[in-house]
């Protein structure tokens, strides 16, 4: 099956286990992580992941909602968006 790439972005206050938390949600829904970039900017945890959603076991909107809700409980803003929007705006 062809890869369908999406970007997961996470911003919020740093705490123990953020990456594990996000990866667990992704793994539960059969989503493969292709790349991770993570840094702390001015005390804020900032992470971008490239993931493959082609095998995702639930509808995309449900996944987005799950990630969003799971982040809110930890004070994190988590969103997932198809990669194409970033390519369109930043690549010629």
């Amino acid at each position: 099956m062809n890869e369908v790439k999406a970007i997961v972005s996470v911003v919020g206050k740093d705490s123990v286990g953020i990456i594990a938390h996000v990866c667990t949600t992704l793994a539960e829904n059969n989503i493969n992580v292709l790349d991770i970039s993570q840094t702390i900017m001015q005390g804020y945890f900032t992470m971008v992941m490239v993931v493959d959603i082609s095998g995702c076991s639930i509808p995309f909107s449900q996944l987005a909602e799950e990630l969003k809700l799971s982040g809110e409980s930890k004070g994190l803003s988590i969103r997932i968006q198809r990669e194409d929007i970033f390519d369109a705006m930043h690549k010629i």
Partner: peptide, 12 residues
């Protein structure tokens, strides 16, 4: 991979 700055620029 597209750089983090660009991704957060779009989100902002």
């Amino acid at each position: 991979m597209i750089n983090t700055g660009s991704i957060f620029e779009t989100i902002e």
